[in-house]
Write a protein that binds this DNA or RNA. Structure first.
Length: 266
DNA sequence: ATGGTCGCCGAGCGA
């Protein structure tokens, strides 16, 4: 089972790039972030016609997450548990940044797609919100670990874990994506007992998942690695591979992020 | 040093 995470930066603007990618790369499951669409306007029929089951958790203008799956999806949760605001459809999150479901293949895998708050400018209220959101994510991650079943949490974490995950770490030193508090909060989640899938397979610098639209970042390979997969031990046992599909960034009308993949022996 | 780019929508905000 091949599972990808992809921050698409607007589903409407990415129809061609997204359907081309799905056709060529054939993920069994795609976790999408920043759909920037309400559920009613998400082009679900387009993906259903390609053989995907579709679950969305959208909002107007910003954020929004979705799951496309060739296998059935069950027990969908919209919104990160423990939220501070009142979202739509009973979700307790004012911002649509989290969706979770069980993929029913030969074996069930619990999957979470997340779009973690950016947190800039830092310090400030947006940074505080990011750190509180990460606390809540840690609580949910701990619950998933306790189930002792194959589960993963994937998406745009908006965290650069290490120096080697930025082409120019000094340029990010004061940024919410690289501040010590953000990196520590990320480590606190990983250190509960998760496997950070990409780093379990590929050490060393020069591996990025995001290149800014500005200042020719892609052409200069001035990137950062902020899209991650965290696997429970039972899920890590199943991992065959994990890779970044960086060439997608060089295509027509691309997102500023690229897909990251895991292949599970399921 | 500044602005440099996108996408949401149709003015700025968020990234």
């Amino acid at each position: 089972m091949k599972i990808a995470t992809f921050n698409i930066n607007g589903v409407k603007a990415r129809i061609t790039a997204l359907t081309d990618w799905l056709t060529e790369s054939q993920p069994d499951v795609a976790l999408l972030q920043e759909i920037k669409s309400v559920d009613e306007n998400f082009p679900r029929e387009l993906f259903e016609d390609m053989g995907y089951n579709v679950e969305t958790h959208g909002q107007k203008g910003f954020n929004g997450v979705a799951i496309l799956s060739k296998y059935p999806l069950e027990d969908v949760i919209r919104g990160l548990p423990g939220g501070e605001g009142t979202g739509r459809d009973g979700a307790d999150d004012a911002e649509a940044r989290y969706i979770e479901a069980t993929v029913v293949g030969d074996r069930a895998v619990r999957i979470s797609g997340l779009y973690l708050p950016n947190g800039n400018p830092a310090p400030g209220p947006k940074f505080d919100y990011k750190l509180r959101w990460m606390d809540r994510l840690r609580a949910r991650a701990a619950d998933l670990l306790a189930a002792e079943e194959p589960a993963l949490l994937a998406g745009d974490y908006n965290v650069i874990p290490q120096e080697e995950d930025a082409a120019r770490p000094d340029a990010w030193r004061e940024d919410a994506l690289f501040r010590p508090e953000s990196r520590a909060a990320f480590r606190r989640i990983v250190n509960l007992g998760f496997t950070e899938a990409f780093r379990a397979r590929t050490p060393g610098p020069g591996h990025f998942t995001f290149w800014d639209y500005q200042a020719g970042a892609w052409n200069r390979n001035d990137g950062i690695r902020i899209d991650h997969f965290l696997l429970t031990p039972q899920c890590a046992d199943l991992m065959r591979d994990c890779w970044i599909e960086s060439e997608v960034r060089g295509r027509e009308k691309p997102s500023d992020h690229v897909p990251v993949w895991v292949d599970l022996a399921v």
